[in-house]
Design a protein around this nucleic acid. Structure first.
Lengths: 137, 137
DNA sequence: GTTCTTGCAAAAGCTTTGCAGGAAG
DNA sequence: CTTCCTGCAAAGCTTTTGCAAGAAC
């Protein structure tokens, strides 16, 4: 069990919440992959071992985890959002090929600071995918 | 008729397309408001004078105008996209109050250049709303 | 007249919700 | 045993699509 996985489950207990099969599996998947999975993709993988776990449960699990700050989701302009454990990278999505590039959050610090200073607005760069095009498109 | 309105209709003719009631009204609304209207809101306003114009027509109109580069749409993390005539400002949406702040596109030039140089990725900042929080939230 | 658009109805895709039964602590 | 979670089914919301009738040029 990865450190992130253990830490997340521990945080759950600390919140006084229950560690259920659905939650354990979702956290496991998120902790062990570097892919960017949607709720539907997570459900499909969960179904491998536990077909009874419903897609709506996956959504509720993700929503709860997000509620206690353990999971983040990224809205894509077309198609479903994807989810990952709370962390420090941002996402660039190519409109052409759909590939997702990870970029350190620090790349956006200067912009965030400037928007804060000039517009009194606290940007949350992680909550939506930044879209554009890969070099080859 | 505003300059933007005339210019947009002219571009339509130049494309060899037809100037229909639906298109004229949608362009008119977009040109005359500084609000950020969704397809549904546009349809509602169109219905004031022309109740027969269907929501799907509004969608198709917006899609066509987007196709010839006359209209842009901005995806919001929750809820419907909003539309505006092609222009040079970007949008910050407050997650708390929903207010939309306009910011000159130039604010993002440095970031766009850096992402291009370092990651070979051409950011299109205008296509999704940047979310965050107003100072007072 | 020809071609482009539209109205309508239906569906698609993602996500949320009500409710009653079931599991965790 | 009490409270929290889950399965299921249904619905919600935004957006897209097929098709035949209608409008623009």
């Amino acid at each position: 069990m990865s450190e992130a996985e253990a830490r997340t489950l521990e945080a759950l207990r600390a919140e006084g919440r229950r560690v259920t099969t659905a939650r354990r599996l979702v956290v496991q998947l998120l902790a062990r992959t570097s892919e960017h999975l949607t709720a539907d993709e997570l459900a499909t993988r969960v179904h491998g071992a536990h077909p009874e776990i419903h897609l709506s449960t996956v959504y509720r699990t993700l929503d709860s985890l997000h509620g206690w700050g353990l999971v983040e989701h990224v809205h894509q302009p077309h198609g479903a959002s994807f989810f990952h454990l709370a962390g420090a990278h941002r996402h660039l999505v190519c409109e052409q090929c759909g590939r997702i590039h990870d970029v350190p959050a620090a790349e956006f610090d200067a912009l965030v600071a400037r928007i804060r200073d000039v517009y009194d607005f606290e940007l949350q760069v992680g909550h939506v995918a930044l879209v554009g095009r890969c070099r080859d498109h």
